[in-house]
Every structure is written in structure tokens, then in C-alpha cells.
Computed example of a mutant assay.
Amino acid sequence: MADPKKDDFLDDIADAEAEELAAQMAEGPEDAAGGTPTGTAGEDELAALAAERDQYKDRFVRALADAENLRKRADKERREAEQYGGSKLARDMLPVYDNMKRALDAATEEQKQASAALIEGIELTMRELLNVFSKHGIDVIVPQVGDRFDPQMHQAMFEAPVPGTKAGDIIQVAAEGFLLHDRLLRPAQVGVSSTPAG
């Protein structure tokens, strides 16, 4: 006949083991050494997917930044082409301006009176040329005798000692210069005093 005390004792042990097992399962799996919990296969896969997602996100952000930089560069090149695309044609037109100016400057008062219609035609053509220059952002650099030489805007064609001037003063203007927007098309050609300051 079975001993009821022994059966109760065995039931108590089984209940205690079941409770301990349930507590272990609630805490999570442990490694073989009985130490800290290890990731399951699902957790490892989730971590790999998160890493891959971060990698794609980083590549996407870089691609967006590259596309934005490319758009900005193309926009800048387009604006420069609009502003400076005609610089070769503008340079080729400068001798036309120079020759018309020389023709007007060379005409004496008697010639102007005798050929008033011709002179007026040249002046009107010159004004129209200057209007076209202005329309396309071309400005004339007109230095005056006595101005200081500026190597950014002027080209020294010669130097000569001139009494009553300082070294670096402009003593003659051979040809006017031109700017296309903020770029120098041609420096003004000038003569510069070499007389030492004193």
C-alpha cells in the first residue's frame, strides 16, 4: 500500500520544480554556462535586418545629398552660361567700339561741321552699341588722367616721368576697359607716371 506522506512529499517536489522551470522561462533562455541570456535566432535576424536598413538609409541620404549638390552645380553653371556665355562675342565687339571712338575723337570741329550728318550717324551707332552692351551686362571702364593705377582694372602700356605727378598716377588713357557683369573683359590701357612720390 502506498504511503500517503511519501506521495505528498513527491508532489511537493514536483510542484517546486515546475515553479522553478516556469520562473526560468519567464526570465528568458540562458546560455549553456547558466549565465546571461543569449539572443535567439529571431533576435539575430532582426538585428541583421536593422543593420541592413541603416545601411540602405545611409546610402539613400548620401544619394539625396549628391543629387542636391549636382542640382546646385548645374544651376550655377546655367546661370554662368547665361551671364558669361557671350563673352567671346563681346570681346570681338570691343575693337568696333574702339574704332568708332577713335573716329569721333579724331574729327576736328571743321570736319564735324562739314560732315555733320556723318558724325551724327557715327554717334547714334555708338550710342546704340553702348545700349546693347548695357543690355548684356557690359560696362565701360573709363579711367581719368590723374586717377591711381589699379592693376585689377588697368594695364600699364608705358611708364614715363611726368612732373607734378606721383608714381602710379595715370597720365594717359590709350583705350577704355570693359567688365562683363563682375568679370574683366579687357583692362583699360593706360600710361602711368614713374615719377617718385615726393
Score class of each variant (00 low, 15 high):
132 V>G: 02
26 A>T: 09
9 F>P: 00
119 I>Q: 11
136 H>Y: 15
45 E>G: 02
185 L>V: 01
61 V>F: 09
128 E>H: 08
104 L>K: 10
56 Y>C: 13
71 R>W: 03
71 R>K: 12
194 S>W: 07
73 R>G: 03
138 I>L: 06
8 D>P: 01
125 T>F: 00
73 R>F: 02
173 V>T: 08
168 G>E: 12
154 H>F: 14
137 G>W: 05
141 I>F: 11
174 A>M: 11
67 A>Q: 05
145 V>Q: 06
86 G>D: 12
20 E>N: 12
81 A>N: 11
192 V>K: 07
160 A>M: 13
17 E>S: 06
99 N>D: 15
35 G>C: 07
80 E>Y: 07
91 R>H: 00
155 Q>I: 01
72 K>P: 00
141 I>T: 13
123 E>P: 08
94 L>C: 08
69 N>G: 07
35 G>Y: 02
25 M>P: 01
34 G>H: 04
164 G>I: 01
44 D>K: 08
65 A>W: 00
106 A>V: 00
86 G>R: 09
50 A>G: 01
39 G>V: 10
147 D>P: 06
31 D>S: 10
165 T>H: 01
94 L>V: 14
33 A>E: 14
198 G>F: 05
116 A>G: 07
155 Q>K: 11
60 F>M: 15
9 F>S: 08
39 G>Y: 04
151 P>N: 15
119 I>V: 15
111 Q>S: 06
22 A>E: 11
1 M>R: 07
122 I>F: 06
135 K>E: 14
57 K>W: 02
115 S>N: 13
153 M>C: 05
23 A>G: 05
66 D>G: 04
60 F>V: 15
81 A>G: 14
134 S>D: 15
71 R>F: 07
26 A>S: 08
66 D>T: 08
122 I>E: 10
109 E>T: 14
188 A>P: 01
124 L>Y: 02
81 A>W: 03
135 K>D: 14
27 E>M: 07
21 L>D: 13
160 A>R: 13
60 F>S: 15
79 R>M: 10
103 A>T: 10
105 D>L: 04
114 A>P: 04
73 R>K: 08
175 A>L: 15
113 Q>Y: 00
100 M>H: 05
37 P>G: 02
164 G>V: 03
